[in-house]
């Protein structure tokens, strides 16, 4: 149990600090609201109940983000492979080709189904 004691103590201190800060602020701070204070800070857009444009982000943002992750992960695997390429032999080469081919299949799907066209 001993290795956990410091961690637990740390967690407890962190939690206590958070609770104390929020609690102390809420209790000690004066609460004198006026219209200007309730407005958005200094500049910016007046808050509306829903986000602009009906509350929806275009789905394309997410598509691009996901595509990025796919290639990101591909490079995560590719770079170590490239570094140790000479020692890994034929087996690893085949595996990598299969891996890239699989990613490419997904890419081809996205491309053919119009995932890369913005409009």
């Amino acid at each position: 149990m001993s290795p956990y004691v410091p961690i637990l103590v740390l967690a407890a201190i962190a939690a206590a600090f958070a609770v104390f800060s929020i609690g102390a602020g809420a209790l000690a701070g004066p609460k004198r609201y006026n219209r200007a204070k309730l407005d958005a800070y200094e500049c910016g857009i007046e808050p509306t109940p829903q986000a602009a444009g009906g509350g929806r982000f275009p789905i394309k943002y997410y598509l691009v983000a996901m595509l990025f992750i796919v290639f990101d992960i591909e490079s995560v695997f590719l770079i170590p492979f490239a570094v140790a390429f000479d020692r890994l032999g034929l087996f690893a080469l085949i595996e990598m080709v299969l891996f890239i081919a699989t990613v490419f299949v997904a890419y081809a799907y996205v491309w053919r189904r119009g995932g890369l066209e913005w409009d």
Binding site: T102, V105, A106, A108, Y109, W111, R112, R113
Partner: peptide, 10 residues
């Protein structure tokens, strides 16, 4: 499954 994705694409 991978072939099926390609079918979907092409």
């Amino acid at each position: 499954a991978i072939v099926a994705v390609l079918v979907e694409a092409f």
